[in-house]
């Protein structure tokens, strides 16, 4: 399990424990990863987040086009694995949860405890802290070296 901010861990651990989910990805609506469990490489996590956020955004637009209220959740049930994709509101804006589960769990169990999880997250969200400068002023030198190394120049 990896979380961007510590206060997410408690609710996320409880959710994993109760739901027996295999993979969990928590992201902002623009696809930035907030927390994850079960993925190997950080970059794969990002692909999943980009795709998950894309699906949520496009189904949201579909709902809007058809004049229906926002869809609550999307569920895909495969033969070996199911997926739940669901948006929820937090004091930090709308977040998205992507949950993969196997036959040891079920859509019903995952939805039940996901609801509890989102309630806990909404209640636990601390106020946003003001952010000062993040990087050193002379970061350009390191950036250039990184990019040169990255492009093999």
């Amino acid at each position: 399990m990896r979380v961007l901010e510590g206060w997410v861990s408690g609710p996320l651990s409880r959710f994993l424990d109760e739901s027996a989910a295999r993979l969990v990805l928590l992201m902002t609506s623009s696809g930035q990863v907030v927390a994850q469990h079960g993925f190997t490489r950080s970059v794969d996590v990002m692909s999943a987040a980009a795709l998950g956020a894309g699906i949520m955004a496009s189904t949201g637009e579909l709902a809007h086009l058809m004049g229906s209220p926002r869809f609550g959740a999307l569920v895909h049930q495969g033969t070996e694995q199911g997926l739940l994709l669901s948006g929820f509101d937090t004091p930090r804006g709308r977040w998205i949860g992507l949950v993969a589960f196997g036959p040891e769990s079920s859509v019903g169990i995952v939805q039940l405890f996901f609801q509890q999880f989102t309630d806990e997250i909404a209640a636990a969200t601390p106020p946003e802290e003001q952010r000062g400068p993040v990087l050193a002023e002379n970061f350009e030198h390191e950036l250039n070296a990184s990019l040169r190394a990255l492009f093999g120049r």
């Binding site: 079960g38 190997t40 070996e80 993969a100």
Partner: peptide
């Protein structure tokens, strides 16, 4: 190994 099982139970 858990990842392997997720891909191939």
């Amino acid at each position: 190994w858990m990842n392997a099982l997720q891909l191939e139970p």
